[in-house]
Design a protein around this nucleic acid. Structure first.
Length: 565
DNA sequence: TCCGTGTGCGCC
DNA sequence: AAAGGGCGCACACGGA
């Protein structure tokens, strides 16, 4: 069953909807929306249709209400607009409804910086003007009684989904995207356990004791060593311009000061410079200031943004939760008597390539525990490293360097898989659109390929098909998109499946980094959680690709500290 | 002083 | 000749 919902102050409106999207009962006004949703959830757990999980669900969670399923109209609208090649059009409920009735389409509101507790609800959830201020709508036609806009847009989306290239897959995409939105809010609500005392010890160990003024001791020492090596005073090692000038004075010409460039430079300033860069990074990006901003009550609470990346990967708004340096993960420690179950999907992207391309030979390799080893045994004379470079090169668009002979082997031995990524690249170079397995669509060149900025008067279209730099860049982008976006879908399906499996346990999802999930649970539940995550991975493969030889093995560990995973 | 851009590195 | 995809974040820099 489906129930459309719209908030209005602390209350709201509910109305049953049938699978085709038509109203299946009268609209019902409730004074206490959270309680009404909780009661209905306990009764038969319908799929809730609402404008935006990000807006409504934090408020429900704070009221102690969890839901099993939803249909997020905004996220779905974005997926459908993208599928139709209309990237960038407003996707709010108000905009979708305006398009539907031929009214002027309002722009999407700017993403807010942060959401303080008790953020106003009300007008957020209904299309502009439709709610009409609640009680005042008595004189309007019945069709405009809330949640009429929610119902109308949902019905329209159901119809548009049916018109996509693979409706069954697209439905799975919409369901997992919506589930991901629920999970993102729940993860932000739960937070990642974070031990401030260990974090402090770690910072002191790496950076030395804090100084009354300026950087910690170790950083000051390294800075002095760099200056001594250059014969300078007051040079700031984090200033690329100053470092470049210093190298130039020493007769060393480097294009930039990136670590991998400096590593090949023979000069006494290089070792302390490299160490400085590494530690300075930790001090500025994950030091005390960071912790005071993002860690509270023993939990790191970033804000996740599902679908924040065009490929469908999540992003974060503040806190950098997807880039916590490995050394800093020592501060992520389970509560007493609890554990982390951390699962990492190994070799996910090459396995996805094997599955989506339907290359039987590559799929056979993908049925093994180590895909690269199987690939090496099959076609590279047992040379695993070369096999890996070749496959990664094919997926990222590398065509030169050491990988050339290996790529030729790949092309000859796995022509179907090779053709899959080559086709995606050619489509992108010609200005076309490519899609993930479930139907997420890449942005058009006007949006995505702006980097090189060489575009003359002709905007989109096959302007670059003859091979300009920006055309090739877009080819690499679309080549990778079909893989990365499908891998993101697999991870999302796994996450949604796992979430359902955890219902009834005390276990909580607390971590999701592209192809890695983490669950915080009592030690007694750890084995059950580990089994659930393995089952989830197998289910995700089946739900996405049906009967395929490709396996998606997980590396699962049960640890007290995230750094040990 | 403010703010947009560039640089460089963290993660996958 | 070589040629790598996607992000977030903090700082330095430089123009307004």
């Amino acid at each position: 069953m489906l129930v459309a919902v719209v908030a209005e102050g602390a209350g709201g409106w509910l109305r049953e909807v049938d699978p085709a999207g038509a109203p299946a009962g009268p609209p019902r006004r409730v004074a206490d929306l959270a309680t009404a949703i909780a009661e209905r959830e306990a009764a038969d757990a319908p799929r809730w249709i609402w404008s935006s999980t990000t807006e409504i669900y934090p408020w429900l969670l704070r009221a102690g209400v969890r839901v099993a399923r939803c249909h997020d109209l905004e996220l779905t609208e974005a997926l459908l607009l993208g599928h139709a090649g209309r990237w960038g059009e407003p996707r709010s409920l108000a905009a979708a409804h305006a398009r539907l009735i031929g009214a002027p389409v309002p722009a999407d509101p700017r993403p807010r910086m942060a959401q303080p507790p008790g953020f106003a609800q009300g007008a957020l959830f209904e299309a502009g003007g439709v709610a009409g201020g609640g009680a005042g709508t008595g004189g309007a036609g019945a069709d405009e009684t809330p949640p009429s806009a929610v119902i109308a847009v949902h019905a329209d989306q159901v119809a548009r989904i049916a018109g996509t290239a693979h409706p069954g897959r697209f439905r799975l995409l919409v369901a997992s995207e919506s589930a991901g939105a629920l999970i993102a809010v729940e993860m932000g609500h739960a937070g990642l356990p974070w031990r401030a005392d260990i974090h402090d010890d770690l910072l002191r160990e790496l950076l030395g004791p804090p100084q009354p003024v300026g950087p910690p001791k170790r950083l000051a020492e390294l800075s002095a060593q760099v200056n001594a090596a250059f014969g300078t005073h007051g040079l700031h090692p984090d200033s690329p311009a100053e470092v470049l000038r210093a190298f130039a004075r020493a007769g060393i010409d480097v294009p930039n000061t990136r670590a991998w460039v400096l590593r090949r430079v023979d000069h006494p300033a290089v070792p302390p410079l490299l160490e400085f860069k590494e530690l300075y990074r930790i001090w500025t990006a994950h030091g005390r200031a960071w912790r005071e901003a993002w860690v509270s009550g023993g939990r790191f609470r970033p804000e996740y943004v599902p679908g924040g990346v065009v490929s469908g990967r999540w992003a974060t708004r503040g806190g950098g939760a997807l880039q916590v340096p490995k050394v800093v993960r020592r501060a992520v420690v389970a509560d007493p008597g609890w554990r982390f179950v951390v699962a990492d999907a190994g070799q996910l992207e090459p396995r996805v390539l094997a599955a989506v391309s339907g290359d039987a030979r590559l799929a056979a390799a993908g049925g093994a525990g180590d895909l690269y080893a199987a690939l090496a045994a099959d076609s590279f004379g047992g040379d695993r490293a070369t096999a890996k470079v070749a496959l990664l090169g094919a997926m990222y668009g590398q065509t030169g360097g050491n990988a050339v002979p290996a790529l030729a082997v790949l092309r000859q031995r796995y022509p179907t898989a090779f053709a899959y990524v080559e086709s995606a690249a050619r489509t992108g170079e010609a200005g076309g659109l490519v899609r993930s397995w479930l139907g997420r669509t890449c942005p058009p060149p006007a949006t995505a390929g702006r980097q090189a900025g060489l575009e003359p008067a002709e905007e989109s279209g096959p302007a670059d098909s003859r091979g300009g730099a920006s055309g090739r860049a877009r080819g690499r982008f679309t080549r990778n998109f079909v893989i990365q976006a499908t891998a993101a879908e697999w991870a999302l399906v796994l996450l949604a499946t796992l979430r359902t499996a955890l219902v009834g346990m005390r276990a909580e999802l607390v971590l999701f980094v592209h192809d890695e999930v983490g669950v915080h649970c009592p030690v007694q539940e750890a084995e059950r959680v580990a089994a659930a995550v393995r089952t989830g991975a197998a289910r995700a493969g089946e739900m996405m690709f049906g009967d395929t030889a490709v396996r998606f093995p997980l590396d699962v560990s049960i640890v007290e500290c995230y750094a040990d995973a």
